[in-house]
């Protein structure tokens, strides 16, 4: 089979080579445009000062669940956080109401679900729905960090979301607060781990390492907030402790410490202001400080 390529064969190879080079040459332009646009959008996100607070209500609650809380926060904080509400329908469609006020870098975003039923299977579904809403939020608003608040099952949805869906490297969650979240459902005995708690523990190494987590429990008596056993809230330590940067447990008692009233509880509003909200930019204080240093 001794066959040297004749002139025409060799020519054909050279034509193929030329076509290959031409092909590469034609791709330079589109590549350039893509990388420029990509880097611009990444820079935009990286430089963005926006840091929303994203809240998930518990089961049987709608996207309006936190209205009172936000009013209280705004009153106490003397800032007007915009309130944006998203609802994810059963067919994966996401609707959005409310607008972002100009120059508001810390809007409150509430994500509710059409199917807001209780149960582990529903929590899994809701976590997926939340991931859809989250994706929509990230493409609409250019933020590179956010704060998470989940009331009751909302905290469980967040936990499932962080363990299974949240894999963005360009966005980080700074602080997570779960309020009255029953990590072991209504089971007060920690020796009896529910399937959900076992799964949370199994995948806990996927939790965001740099987040600071607060788990707030309410109690009417020594062991329950009327619906959720304090022991069940406490079980969150098996999931978060040692996995995230800080894990703090807080117990609130007294007025409005009943499970459903927790989001309106004055203590909890204070806790949210203190631990979750970003500190106010203290421009005026700096000015005064400057003058004092000057005068010294």
């Amino acid at each position: 089979m001794l066959k040297n390529p004749s002139g025409s064969r060799r020519l054909r190879s050279l034509i193929v080579l030329a076509l290959g080079i031409l092909f590469l040459g034609l791709l330079i332009g589109p590549s350039y445009r893509w990388t420029r646009a990509n880097v611009t959008s990444m820079t935009g996100r990286h430089d963005s000062p926006m840091s929303p607070i994203i809240m998930i209500p518990g089961s049987s609650a709608s996207q309006n669940r936190f209205d009172t809380l936000v009013t209280q926060l705004n009153k106490a904080d003397k800032r007007k956080h915009s309130l944006i509400k998203l609802t994810v329908k059963k067919n994966d469609r996401v609707t959005m109401t409310g607008t972002l006020r100009p120059r508001d870098n810390e809007p409150v975003i509430v994500v509710g679900f059409e199917n807001n039923k209780d149960g582990y299977d529903n929590i899994k579904k809701q976590a997926r729905w939340f991931s859809l809403a989250f994706k929509q939020l990230t493409s609409k608003y250019q933020f590179n960090n956010f704060k998470a608040i989940g009331h009751s099952n909302g905290g469980l949805i967040y936990t499932y979301f962080f363990e299974h869906y949240f894999n963005r490297t360009d966005i980080k969650v700074k602080r997570i607060m779960t309020i009255g979240s029953p990590y072991n459902f209504s089971e007060a005995n920690l020796d009896h781990k529910t399937q959900m708690l076992a799964d949370f523990i199994k995948y806990r190494d996927k939790l965001p390492k740099n987040a600071t987590v607060y788990s707030v429990a309410g109690t009417e008596n020594y062991d329950t907030d009327g619906l959720v056993p304090a022991r069940s809230v406490e079980a969150g330590k098996y999931v978060y402790q040692g996995q995230v940067k800080h894990y703090t447990e807080i117990t609130v008692t007294g007025n409005n410490a009943q499970h459903s009233s927790l989001p309106q509880n004055q203590q909890i509003v204070t806790l949210i202001r203190q631990y979750v909200l970003d500190k106010k930019p203290k421009r005026s204080r700096t000015l005064i400080n400057n003058t004092t240093t000057n005068s010294e």
Partner: peptide, 11 residues
């Protein structure tokens, strides 16, 4: 290979 091979199979 394109620019200097003489072997048909290589091409």
């Amino acid at each position: 290979i394109f620019i200097s091979s003489n072997n048909h199979n290589y091409h």
